[in-house]
Computed example of a mutant assay.
Amino acid sequence: MTATPPLAPEDVRKVACIGAGVIGGGWVAHFLARGYDVTAWDPADDAEEKLRRLVSAAWPALEQMGLAEGASQDRLTVTPTLAEAVADADFVQESAPEKLELKRSLLAELTDATRDGVIIASSTSGYPMSDMHSDGADNGRLVVGHPFNPPYLIPLVEVVGGEKTDRAAVEWASRFYDVAGKSVITMDRELPGFIANRLQEALWREALHMVANGEASVQDIDDSITEGPGLRWAFMGPLLTFALAGGEGGMGHMLDHFGPSLKSPWTRLEAPELTRELRDAMVEGCEAEAGERTYADLVAERDQGVINVLRATGRLGGAE
């Protein structure tokens, strides 16, 4: 069945959130702050009490960020059944626990309970959508919409479909999240763990190795990020940061100079072969990301960004 949403992303007014734990509740807070009517359902007996407490706790931060016109906690309705929650929904965000069979059955149930064409997104943190497709379900409108915790503060959402997902559904979901105030990465292909979680996982595993082997303490590892590369990663990702390490020669010079270190035992991860194709892809990607900004522009942007982060976190020693 072809996914044909009943509304354009810009016309969505009512969002249903299925699952109201930390992630689902964070989504509820985000959508309320963006001015949507939100219906929520969770099977736990105390779900509504916990959800409203979570939203209330998040609201001061959302007020600081700026509420959309009409945003109100009063626009939240918690329903006794899943069917009631999604009956009139224009979009559905599923945030059930990370159990594959639960996800499969729940998503199939949601395709039966929602109006034809309504896009249903899963907050799964690692399962490919293809693994969550079910026989007999309207799989064409199922997408992954993977947020970062807490969803009401961290802008990123990674969007990707499965083998049976219509490309139009992926494009619609990406546009909807953009309209709803998120920073969207639309992935071209499925990848377990998606992009950001795989990068986090690599750092996490190496940290565990270092602690297990007595090579660094937990404090050392945390300080190495917050006082080091994390300051730059807050506004300029690791690849463009590495490109600046190549000076005016950019990523090409950096790879030519430091490429041999990929064979050094700096991490337990196995490095890919630095082929000409990989080198060119990295160089071209950095050039595209930099756009019209020169090396000097990027250096100035980086320097000011670090100063801004240090100032925001109170680490400039009183300097203005």
Rank of each mutant, 00 (worst) to 15 (best):
R293T: 13
D303Q: 10
D303F: 13
T267F: 13
E277V: 10
P272L: 13
T275F: 00
A296W: 10
A288R: 04
P272A: 07
L269E: 08
V309L: 08
Q304Y: 05
K263C: 00
L269Y: 10
V283Y: 03
G291P: 00
T267N: 14
E284C: 08
G250N: 06
A281F: 11
D256T: 09
G259Y: 00
F258H: 09
T267L: 12
L278K: 02
R302K: 11
L278T: 07
C286A: 08
E284A: 15
E301V: 09
E289H: 07
R268T: 15
R268A: 15
G291A: 10
V299R: 09
M251R: 05
W266V: 15
M254D: 03
V309W: 03
D280I: 00
A296H: 12
G285A: 04
P260V: 05
E248I: 09
S264V: 08
H253R: 15
T275E: 08
L274M: 06
E292N: 04
Q304S: 08
Q304V: 06
M282A: 07
M251H: 06
L298P: 06
E284N: 15
S261Y: 08
H257Q: 10
R293Y: 07
M282T: 00
G252F: 04
H257G: 01
L255G: 02
G285L: 03
T275K: 05
G285E: 05
G259W: 00
V299K: 11
A288L: 06
E292C: 04
E248A: 10
E287Q: 14
V306T: 10
P272C: 09
P272I: 12
T294Y: 04
E289D: 10
F258D: 06
R268P: 15
V306L: 04
S261W: 13
D256S: 03
A296P: 05
L274A: 12
L310A: 02
T294V: 01
R276I: 14
H253N: 10
R293F: 13
L298G: 04
V283Q: 03
H257F: 15
E248P: 07
M251W: 01
A271I: 09
L310D: 01
C286S: 06
G285T: 07
E292Q: 08
E248D: 13
A281I: 10
E292R: 06
Q304A: 11
R268H: 14
A300R: 07
E273Q: 09
A300V: 03
L278P: 04
Q304M: 11
E273A: 09
A296E: 15
P265I: 03
L278Q: 03
G285P: 02
E273K: 11
H253K: 14
E287A: 11
M251Q: 02
K263R: 14
G291Y: 02
E289T: 14
V299N: 05
E287K: 12
I307F: 11
M254E: 08
R268K: 09
T294S: 14
G305A: 05
R279H: 15
G246D: 07
